[in-house]
Amino acid sequence: MALLTVSGLGVTIGTLSPLDDVSFEAHKGEILGLVGESGSGKSLTAMAVMGLLGRIGGRVSSGSILFDGQELVGLRDSSYRRLRGKRIALISQNPMTSLDPIVRIGAQIDQVSLLHLRLSKPAAKARSIDLMQQLRIPDAETLHRAYPHQLSGGMKQRIVIAMALAADPDLIIADEPTTALDVTIQAQIIQIMVDLVRARDLALILITHDMGVVAQACNRVVVLYAGRVAETNTTQAIFASPCHPYTASLIGCIPSRDQAEGTLLGIPGTVPGVLNYPKGCRFHPRCGDAMQVCARTVPPTTAQPTGSVACHLHEVVT
């Protein structure tokens, strides 16, 4: 059974509806990739699951978020507070801003288990150092007393991961965890997260725009475009035989190992903003396979052997 089931999720901010009918499942021991370009609604989805939409004046307008059998939509803030950090943890994009610059990093990790696991101070410290060692942070005892500015970006991101793990969560949402990091460091952090999911039977939602990271790490993929799900499938199927033209174009935007010169195309036009989402299929103005119907009606989501796609090309003719 899925640990997290999001179905028909819609989000509104004021009069805008940036997210529309988003559905997916996250399973234990699996990495789910949430992929899309800027403005596709990746981070908004994460905020909806974390119950943080209120902070930006947004709210869930439709659908449900079922976490381990519990409905999260409409949950009281006090109940949410017991979930956040304890059972659902967030790793945000920029490790430079997710740590408090004037608090020792050890204290920042400790406070998670002090609060959520009600450990004693020495026990919390021992637990933090143990976690830091598991994340291959060298000289963990010394660094426990260090301040964030004394660490490199990759090391800071490991501290943020240690904080996320401190209360033994079941679900971790990582929002572009390696975007701010160099490639060699990115590779290390991704490897660490893949190992963690296996070792701890975690469910991890990995939000990224990097198809290389998706191919390397994810079990399943949800492709978002302009606030809707274009396609979901296993990673193998997404890359081997993408159903949605957007997925295919997105993969085609990264030059492959032996791509011939002059064959890189990109996708014409730009990603629409929430104020000017096109009618019908939101990808149709940029789509090479667009038909008349695409400009008129929203494509229904149809099942595929291992996933689903929302495209008129794959509509079942009855």
Binding site: R136, V183, T184, Q186, A187, Q188, I190, Q191, D210, M211, G212, V213, V214, A215, Q216, T235, Q236, F239, I251, I254, S256, R257
Partner: peptide, 21 residues
Amino acid sequence: QALTNSHFEPDPTRRKQVQIL
């Protein structure tokens, strides 16, 4: 070589075991 090894191909059949520097 480490740089090349850290680069992920957009191809799930070419996953690599990362050698951590």
